[in-house]
Write a protein that binds this DNA or RNA. Structure first.
Lengths: 134, 134, 134, 134
DNA sequence: GTGGTCTAGACCACG
DNA sequence: GTGGTCTAGACCACC
């Protein structure tokens, strides 16, 4: 019931870490449609995070269309078809990748070299273990 | 002769944008060893940026070992072998990529699907024109 | 609780003096892992230094890998093993010493004479009191 | 007749490099009493250094009591007894060393460890070749 | 002219 | 409250 492992040494803001963790949990299917999220207060208390920070993360997730909040009731995972989710994952990945690839191009890295680097990184990250979703 | 296109609305700090642009120019070979950079004041004047901001960017580049500055003389590209540069580019790319790939893995994207996405993004970015290295 | 004695007439920049003082405090174990540093504004207020100058010193310490800063929270001593610290101290000392020894050699000082001078200086500096490590 | 090898990549100011080179040449006996130095113009032309910079170096050497200038005639090495020179070398070395040793002490390095480091650096620098004066 | 330091003060994002 | 960025302007050492 309680997850969220925040790295307080990271330079990524705490609220961004929360957003990312929940986002990835939804994408991977760990959180399912209409499942309730812990209330802001509960999350803040159990994870020892400032309630304002949790609130900001929830707001961000709502803006991303990933959750919906019913005042006085709680926050819930928004229902999505698996196609919609897959599309979102691909779109998110592509956006992040384009920046890096464009930078590589500006650095003069030849297309074939870049592909080699990409595939080697994938092999390295996925090679560690076979659990693709954890 | 005059480059640097700064996006003042970006959330990336101006000094970081300058660092990245010059870094990529060095990596790609557009700026060569011991070539002088525009003086801090000149760059500041021509780009309408505060001299302190330019100075901070130059200082950062010096910390990265990419340029050196001498009071009373100017700032210059530090001499590096092409092997060293290539190594730096690959290391930089790999670091940035690992984060994204790891996130894709946590989202439950299968290895083969991810490879397809990667290659398609590369094709898209490099497809625009055929000058990959300049 | 309050340290830092800055010499405003020294030719060593103020921000460098701050870096050195904190660096030595970490090396000697006076500042321990994850201990909070005074906030930039507090340090600036208590030492009558401009906050920008303190910030620059902290940034430098972060680049050296000695502290980490998080917006909204504060700045903290980075955790290091005592082996790592010892190694850093020795490396720092050796680098500084090599310059002087090389100069002595160029001045024609015989090896044995130099050793005598070195040991006499050590005796003089350490002789003042017997608390070498605190 | 012409020496001076200036490192334009060094962060040590050019005028300081000139001072140090001449100073060490005097200390080691390579330059003898009343020997003439090249004129400022000649030095500047042959070494491709700004005359103002050479002039500043000579002025510094004069302030150090190492040379004397006769307007319209030239600059010369000041006569010193070998005892005086030896004393100066030791005093110069000691001053530079004290700073480093004091810093080591503040870092908590035990006296015996420091001595070991010192002797190992001396061995390393002097071990390379047996010409102590070149 | 060059780069480097320092101050002052404003504004932003984060918790 | 915290750190981070940016501007403005002064002063220094170096060439």
């Amino acid at each position: 019931m309680l997850w969220l492992s925040i790295d307080y040494h990271s330079e990524e803001p705490v609220y961004r870490q929360i957003v990312t963790i929940i986002q990835e949990a939804i994408m991977s299917g760990k959180l399912k449609a209409n499942e309730p999220l812990p209330s802001i207060r509960e999350m803040a208390r159990s994870q020892r995070i400032n309630p304002n920070t949790v609130a900001r993360a929830y707001r961000e997730l709502e803006n991303l269309g990933l959750i919906y909040s019913r005042p006085g009731v709680g926050s819930f995972i928004r229902a999505k078809s698996s196609d919609e989710i897959e599309e979102q994952v691909i779109s998110l990945l592509s956006t992040n990748l384009e920046e890096i690839v464009a930078s590589a191009k500006r650095c003069g890295v030849p297309e074939e070299d870049l592909k080699d680097i990409l595939l080697s990184v994938v092999g390295k990250v996925y090679g560690g273990d076979k659990n693709a979703s954890n």
